[in-house]
Computed example of a mutant assay.
Amino acid sequence: MDLDLRKVRYFVAVAELLHFGRAAERLHIAQPVLSRQIRALEKDVGAELFVRDSHGVALTGAGRQLLEDGSALLASADAARRRVLRVARGTRRLLVGFRAGIVVAPALRAFSAAHPDVRGNARRVEWDDQERLILDGTVDIAYVRRPVREDGLELLPLCTEPRVAMLPEGHRLAGKPGITLADLDGETWLRYNDPGPDDLPIRTVEEKFEYVASGTAITMVPRSVAEQYSRPDISYVPVTDAAPDQVLLAWAAGRHSSLITAFAEIARTVAGQTAGES
């Protein structure tokens, strides 16, 4: 039996919240209706998806697998819906995502010259949404930086670049021509994936500026970020033994698009020319 996307969407809401009442509120449906839909889905797939007891709701092994596959399935369906709507409106468009510091304009200019009937635009993505925005169709293709969650993505390595320390003005190492990681021993580093209980995740380079300039902590950024973003209260210092930053192109695996293929080839050529000039 084919999976009913509506039931899968209901399931994902419960799986993420592990609470039928809150999931029903999120979905704007009655809780008994949601419970019936989940039981119907369990019948469809032939497996129990949740353990329900006096302690609450927990996913079974089958439920964990469906959450992983179902989230990707819903993202793919949403992406298809967006593409169909764009075609129905008569608009051929390629939306290219990019991380801070990465210059997209040369590749977009070359792409537009080769495809004058296609509107090419760019949208910045961040470390915590770069994969989601590709998989759900918000962007068609994106320049991303490692680390990358590779599930569901095709990846094309483009280039690497050195990383530099972002330090507050007046820091003991500010202004030096180069330092090593050992020189940074004992420093407090910004936390990204594991913020404190009262902290919000740090997402953007602008947020990094504020933390570093205030003396709260330091971090490292790709050299291209240092070249594009300058502030008098921030100092960038090359870290000679830091692992280089990796830039890749990413798009949804299994998506066959002549425009994506064309842009990827142009982007690779432009990256090669840029590397040859540097």
Results as ranks from 00 to 15, higher is better:
residue 97 G to C: 00
residue 174 A to S: 12
residue 91 T to Y: 05
residue 174 A to T: 02
residue 116 P to K: 12
residue 169 E to S: 12
residue 81 R to T: 12
residue 105 A to T: 15
residue 109 R to A: 10
residue 168 P to G: 06
residue 77 A to G: 13
residue 127 W to Y: 09
residue 168 P to W: 07
residue 135 L to I: 10
residue 110 A to T: 11
residue 179 I to T: 00
residue 121 N to W: 12
residue 130 Q to W: 03
residue 67 L to N: 03
residue 182 A to V: 08
residue 155 L to K: 01
residue 101 G to K: 05
residue 83 R to G: 02
residue 139 V to I: 11
residue 107 A to D: 05
residue 162 P to F: 04
residue 89 R to D: 12
residue 71 S to D: 12
residue 138 T to R: 12
residue 95 L to W: 05
residue 169 E to K: 15
residue 116 P to A: 09
residue 185 D to Q: 15
residue 90 G to V: 02
residue 170 G to C: 09
residue 179 I to E: 00
residue 162 P to M: 05
residue 165 A to P: 01
residue 116 P to T: 08
residue 112 S to K: 13
residue 90 G to D: 08
residue 125 V to M: 13
residue 182 A to D: 13
residue 134 I to R: 03
residue 147 P to A: 00
residue 135 L to Q: 10
residue 159 C to M: 13
residue 182 A to L: 11
residue 97 G to V: 00
residue 149 R to Y: 09
residue 130 Q to K: 11
residue 97 G to Y: 00
residue 178 G to Y: 10
residue 187 E to W: 03
residue 145 R to W: 09
residue 186 G to H: 09
residue 93 R to H: 12
residue 167 L to I: 02
residue 73 L to C: 00
residue 174 A to E: 01
residue 72 A to D: 14
residue 146 R to Q: 11
residue 182 A to H: 10
residue 89 R to H: 09
residue 130 Q to L: 10
residue 77 A to I: 12
residue 95 L to F: 02
residue 172 R to T: 08
residue 105 A to H: 14
residue 115 H to F: 12
residue 173 L to Y: 07
residue 107 A to W: 04
residue 125 V to E: 01
residue 184 L to R: 06
residue 86 R to C: 08
residue 170 G to R: 08
residue 115 H to T: 05
residue 181 L to A: 09
residue 142 A to D: 07
residue 150 E to F: 08
residue 115 H to G: 07
residue 140 D to E: 11
residue 89 R to K: 13
residue 139 V to F: 05
residue 66 L to Q: 01
residue 128 D to P: 03
residue 123 R to Q: 14
residue 102 I to N: 07
residue 172 R to F: 04
residue 91 T to V: 15
residue 136 D to L: 09
residue 94 L to D: 01
residue 83 R to E: 10
residue 179 I to C: 01
residue 166 M to Y: 04
residue 73 L to F: 07
residue 102 I to Y: 14
